[in-house]
Computed example of a mutant assay.
Amino acid sequence: MKLGLQLGYWGAQPPQGVGELVAAAEEAGFDAIFTAEAWGSDAFTPLAWWGRETSRVRLGTSIVQMSGRTPTSIAMHALTLDHLTGGRVILGMGVSGPQVVEGWYGQPFAKPLARTREVVDIVRKVLAREAPVTNDGPHYPLPYSGPGSVGLGKPLKPIVHPLRADLPIWLGAEGPKNVAQTAEIADGWIPIFYTPRTAGMYQPWLDEGFARPGARRTREDFEIAATCHLQVVADAAEKQAVLDALKPVIALYMGGMGAKEQNFHKNVFERMGYAAITDQVQELFLAGKREEATALIPTELADEMHIVGTAGEVKERVAQWAETGVTTLLLSSRSAEEIRQVAELLA
């Protein structure tokens, strides 16, 4: 199992010390560096900025929000960065949720699975550069001929010859149908809140996708990149403090990321067996009572989602994640020293 550094997306200000983290990850033998986006910083620019100092690690997005750019624009970003990095890009994409898609990007959220399939198909056509790119699908028709069209759209091929037609595309997916489609059409899967205990829930969904006619990959060459926080602690008291510090983020995703009527992250926690608290956490969080919502997050959930413990416990937990089929563990980290410590421990 490979290690990746998850830089995530920015808070109110650009994070400090990221260059040191990236340099440490490259030095320590990490396989990849990933960035993310929500409705603030974008995923591509930080990857290009900090990635320019690297020469070996793969550079991935986890995830690019499909509604934020047209499919051909996404492909342009990917092929440009792939050239600049000598073929090290992993294009991770996802549909986000209706609050962000319709509230921030001003795009319709309906039919997320069909939209995903169209986006992946168009991106692959751009990267293949075999013919001018067209698409007959209803979501991203190329050329466009709908309302407001002047009727002069022309199918085009990218001016730049892409470095790799097979640039890997990984998809963020949460529900059964989306995970199955990901196994069918993508090169990898970026799950959210994946844990060894719940890994079995996903296996039939993945198997369904692999079994579909024309599936792109098999389980043997399909990548699964799971994100967690990994930290070595001295004792139980320090472990509890670390887990407590992780609970506010869990409360945010369970209660505040998405609309009350539709929160895909909340649905994942319910599938994980925490339905008894999800409604109450959401109610408190949306009412502005974030501390009360956080107080409801069980320590065992934080412990299940992350790898926190003594050196021996961490090694044992990492092995459990690897046994479930995870090929890359995407880790958040606070310092270069922590990155070196993790790499040495798991070497």
Rank of each mutant, 00 (worst) to 15 (best):
L345V: 14
Y274G: 14
L171Q: 04
P143G: 07
A293F: 01
F269V: 08
N178D: 01
P248M: 09
L21K: 15
P143A: 03
A226C: 12
R216T: 12
E223C: 09
R197Y: 07
F193W: 13
A36T: 03
G188T: 10
A237Y: 02
V232R: 13
A12N: 07
A319K: 02
S96Q: 10
W321A: 08
E27L: 15
P71W: 00
E26H: 11
R197S: 10
R115Y: 02
I190F: 15
F269Q: 08
A234T: 05
F210G: 13
E338M: 14
A25R: 11
A215N: 02
I250H: 09
W104G: 14
A128I: 04
P147L: 09
E316T: 01
H77V: 00
I90T: 12
G256P: 07
R129F: 03
A211Q: 12
I159Y: 05
V232Q: 11
V22R: 11
V101K: 06
V233E: 08
T116L: 02
R129Q: 00
A251F: 02
L84I: 02
G258Y: 08
H306K: 10
A23I: 13
K260H: 07
R219Q: 12
E344Y: 14
R69C: 10
Q107I: 04
A131Q: 04
T310H: 11
D187Y: 03
K177D: 13
D221L: 09
Q16R: 09
Q280I: 06
L91Y: 05
P108M: 01
P298A: 13
E208Q: 12
A24G: 15
H161S: 10
G146I: 07
P14K: 10
E220L: 08
L113P: 01
V249H: 04
E323M: 09
G137Y: 07
L345H: 13
D136F: 02
L79W: 01
V160G: 02
E223A: 09
A236I: 03
M1I: 00
A319Q: 04
G209C: 03
E291F: 03
A276W: 05
E344T: 15
Q65I: 13
G68H: 06
S332C: 12
A347T: 15
E337T: 14
K260N: 02
T195N: 13
H83A: 15
G17V: 15
T54I: 00
T299V: 09
Q240K: 00
E184W: 12
E238H: 15
N178H: 11
A78Y: 00
T327Q: 01
G68W: 10
V133N: 07
I185Y: 08
L163K: 15
V314Y: 12
L156P: 06
Q341K: 14
D207N: 15
S332M: 13
